[in-house]
Simulated scan of single mutants.
Amino acid sequence: MNEIIGECMRRLDQSLGYLELAAGRLTEDQIWFRPRPKMNAIGNLCLHLAGNEYQHLVCAVGGRPAERDRPSEFLTRGGCTPEELLESLREVRRESRAVVNGLTEKDLERAVTVHYTESSEMENYSWSIQKVLIGTAEHYAYHTGQIVYLAKWLQEEDVHLLNWKHYD
């Protein structure tokens, strides 16, 4: 496997592991808690990550039709347990991995188009597969940090979720 492909997938898997640690400790009410009305809950960010990864890797790179309802990722106010959200993220990862495992070094330079539905009010764009992989990993890590921070804030005890050394 190409180094860029391998590193992007390693980072995506690492972020998913962090989400499993963080969200796996929370209740359904905590997953759907919004610190302020205009802020996203952890559940919304999980739906958003699943939708984004699916759209970019499975659809744009893998050639499946884009079926993402991006607005609902942010408008949803509940209805999924933490485990259901995590399983959705895991399923998307399995599908992404199946697509990415078939890529060659030459494929990385090939341009693909990321398509959005009209309801998303987003513009389609074309990127190289390499840029799609890097952008997807970066986007996932960004929202993973938000989720981990909010999960730490919501938990009852003061536990370092990622076992990193922090100083008081």
Rank of each mutant, 00 (worst) to 15 (best):
R34V: 04
Y18T: 03
L45E: 02
S72W: 15
W127R: 05
E67L: 05
N163G: 07
A111C: 14
L86Q: 05
R70M: 03
A50N: 04
D69I: 10
A111L: 13
R36P: 04
H166C: 14
E109I: 13
W127H: 08
V92R: 04
E123V: 15
I129S: 07
M39V: 13
Q14F: 15
V100F: 03
V112T: 00
R70L: 05
T117E: 13
P71A: 12
R36V: 13
E123M: 11
L12Q: 11
S88F: 09
L21I: 14
E53K: 10
I5M: 09
E3V: 12
N44P: 02
H139G: 07
T136V: 12
A22T: 00
E87L: 14
A141W: 05
H48S: 06
T144W: 07
L19T: 03
I129P: 01
A41T: 02
E67I: 10
W164S: 15
Q30H: 05
H139R: 08
A111D: 12
Q155D: 13
D107F: 09
L150V: 09
E83V: 11
E83K: 14
E157F: 13
P65F: 01
P35I: 08
G17E: 08
E87H: 06
A66W: 07
E109S: 12
R110N: 05
P71G: 12
G79Y: 09
R77G: 07
S96G: 06
R10Y: 15
Y116Q: 04
R97Q: 13
D69C: 06
A141E: 03
E105Y: 05
G6K: 15
R70Q: 09
E138K: 04
R77I: 10
Q146N: 09
N44K: 07
A151F: 11
W32S: 01
P37C: 13
